[in-house]
Each structure stands twice: as structure tokens, then as C-alpha cells.
Amino acid sequence: MENLIKYMLNYAFDHGISYALLDQIDPDYPSVSFTDIGRMVINLNWKNQNEIPFMIGHEIGHFANGDKGTFY
């Protein structure tokens, strides 16, 4: 799973999306996209660790869809 997370984050970076990785926060705090500033914030302490790559993909999707603003 670590390789998949690295792949997804590299994909984001290669497509101009910056990110912050948080691991000291509440496991119920969702990841978010700030498409207006080109940044996503990923909760690495998420309650279901197996969902993290999917969450990263979901956040990248906001950029791919051309969503505007902040979604959380």
C-alpha cells in the first residue's frame, strides 16, 4: 500500500497539485481539496488505513474535474 500512496502523491505532484500530509490529527477528520490554491490535505491517520489511496484519488479527482473552491 505504501507504494500505491507514493504513486498517487507523485501523480498529484506531476500534475501541479501540492499536498500536505497530516498524521497527528483526529482519525475522523476527512481529507480535503483546496482547488483554488492547488493543494490537497491528506489525513494519514484516517480510521481505515486501507482507504487512504482511494482518498488521495478522490481528492485528485476534484482537480481533474475542474472543481472550484474548497470541498470538505
Rank of each mutant, 00 (worst) to 15 (best):
N45V: 05
A12C: 07
H62C: 08
S31M: 05
D67E: 15
F54Q: 14
G16N: 04
S33L: 05
N48F: 11
F34P: 00
Y11E: 10
E51G: 01
F13M: 09
P53H: 13
M55C: 15
Q24Y: 09
I52P: 00
T35E: 02
G66K: 02
M40C: 07
N45A: 15
Y19I: 05
E59S: 06
N43F: 04
M40L: 12
W46N: 09
M55I: 15
A64Q: 15
Y72K: 15
H15C: 06
A20G: 01
K47P: 00
K6N: 13
L21P: 00
I25T: 09
Y7I: 05
N10K: 11
Y7E: 09
M40A: 13
L9N: 04
I56A: 08
P27R: 07
Y29L: 11
G66I: 05
Y29Q: 12
M1P: 03
G16R: 06
S31I: 02
K47H: 14
I5Q: 08
L9I: 05
L4I: 11
G61A: 02
E2V: 13
M40R: 03
P30V: 11
A64H: 12
L22H: 12
N45Q: 02
G38H: 09
M1H: 13
K47N: 09
I56L: 07
V41M: 01
I5H: 07
H15Y: 03
T70Q: 06
T70C: 01
G61V: 13
E59D: 13
Y11R: 08
P27E: 08
E51I: 15
W46R: 08
L22K: 13
M1K: 10
T35Y: 00
I5M: 06
M55V: 15
D23G: 11
K68T: 06
N65G: 01
E59R: 12
E2R: 14
Y29H: 08
F63R: 00
V32T: 13
K6M: 10
L44I: 00
I56D: 01
G16L: 05
Y7A: 09
N50A: 15
H15A: 09
N65Y: 10
I17W: 04
N10W: 04
Q24R: 11
M40S: 06
P30G: 05
P30C: 11
M8I: 04
N10L: 08
M8T: 02
H62S: 03
H62R: 14
I25A: 01
A64F: 10
Q24K: 11
A64T: 14
G66T: 07
E2S: 14
G66N: 05
E51K: 15
G61L: 11
G69W: 04
L22E: 03
L22N: 09
H15E: 04
L9M: 08
P30S: 11
K47T: 03
N3W: 06
F34H: 13
